[in-house]
């Protein structure tokens, strides 16, 4: 049996290995993903993003528990940064989710960014697809603790949750438009701390100032205390409401379109680059081009035009 067939057969080790092959960019993974693709598109994908230490993993742990209560199968992709110095990484999100380790209805995978900006890894979308094909009802993606403009999660998730903590809203300038644009649900976690109400109010006021189009989703601000599970029930209801809105408003179709377009564009971009770059590396053109650039007899613009002209793109 191929890895993909074993994945569809419910083999956890095969799924884990395929995710590894994807992450390590093995060519063989492409064939497996082809097999799995028809079996994807069923999972509800939930993204959590927000600054480092806001309590994303702690909330994911609670959200897993809540979905498990409903007897849904849950996949988690948790992303932490790769050290730019060594290429290594410490992936620590799992620590907060250990109580689910023995539950066969939960599959948690840690990924390192491996140099990818945007809060995720290059492999994230494909790994989510493997979990989807495994039959997970929900896939939760926790991005790295991002600053403000790393917002790739939006094109992956159905519902994007922005997790903040009290105090952050004190300086309205500090919250850039980017993070306000991406959230479908806003959470002020660590509500046990001073200033939670104020942060929630300021955040809500900022969201109201956006003047949404008629019929658009109006993101709410919720308060939670991840470490004790307080506010998680309301959070789950908000997910449900957003999901229902996506379906009834037609926004879901638009989201799926965008997601598909991105997956196709990303795949095309990578494949084109790999092929063309591989070819010119092999036939020596690449060396000639860099030599030419060094002594200024050629420029990168002309070189790219020539490389592409030598291949047929009608």
């Amino acid at each position: 049996m191929t890895l993909a067939e074993r994945v569809l057969d419910g083999d956890v080790r095969a799924a884990a290995r395929l995710m590894r092959d994807i992450d390590d960019r093995f060519k063989s993974a492409v064939a497996e993903l082809k097999t799995l693709y028809p079996h994807t598109g069923n999972a509800y994908i939930l993204g959590l993003t927000g600054p480092p230490g806001a309590g994303k993993s702690t909330l994911v742990d609670q959200i897993i528990a809540a979905f498990r209560k409903k007897e849904l199968l849950v996949g988690v992709v948790a992303i932490d940064p790769t050290s730019p110095f060594s290429g290594g990484a410490i992936l620590g999100d799992r620590i907060r989710m250990n109580r689910h380790a023995e539950d066969a209805g939960v599959f948690i995978r840690s990924l390192a960014t491996r140099g990818c900006l945007g809060g995720m890894s290059r492999s994230t979308m494909d790994v989510v697809n493997v979990m989807d094909a495994m039959g997970m009802d929900v896939v939760i993606v926790e991005t790295v603790g991002v600053g403000q403009d790393e917002v790739d999660i939006v094109s992956t998730a159905h519902t994007t949750v922005v997790v903040m903590v009290p105090g952050m809203g004190d300086d309205i300038q500090a919250i850039k438009a980017g993070i306000l644009e991406i959230g479908d649900v806003f959470v002020v976690n660590k509500a046990d701390r001073d200033g939670a109400d104020r942060t929630a109010r300021e955040l809500a006021a900022m969201l109201e100032m956006k003047h949404p189009e008629p019929g658009a989703w109006l993101p709410h601000v919720l308060k939670t205390e991840g470490s004790r599970g307080i506010g998680v029930e309301e959070l789950m209801e908000e997910f449900e409401a957003h999901r229902a809105f996506l379906k009834s408003s037609g926004a879901l179709q638009r989201l799926i379109q965008e997601r598909n377009a991105k997956l196709f564009a990303d795949t095309l971009r990578e494949e084109l680059f790999d092929r063309v770059f591989g070819a010119i590396n092999e036939n020596g053109d690449y060396c000639r081009i860099t030599d030419g650039m060094r002594n200024r007899t050629t420029d990168p613009y002309t070189a790219v035009e020539e490389v592409l002209a030598a291949r047929a793109f009608p």
Partner: peptide
């Protein structure tokens, strides 16, 4: 990490079952 490995750090108080299950998933 400094040697370039990816480390899944699971922290304290792990049962053998948790360790093995996490190792397989990861």
């Amino acid at each position: 990490r400094d040697a370039g490995f990816e480390v899944i750090y699971t922290g304290l108080h792990q049962t053998p079952e948790q360790i093995v299950s996490a190792s397989i998933q990861e």
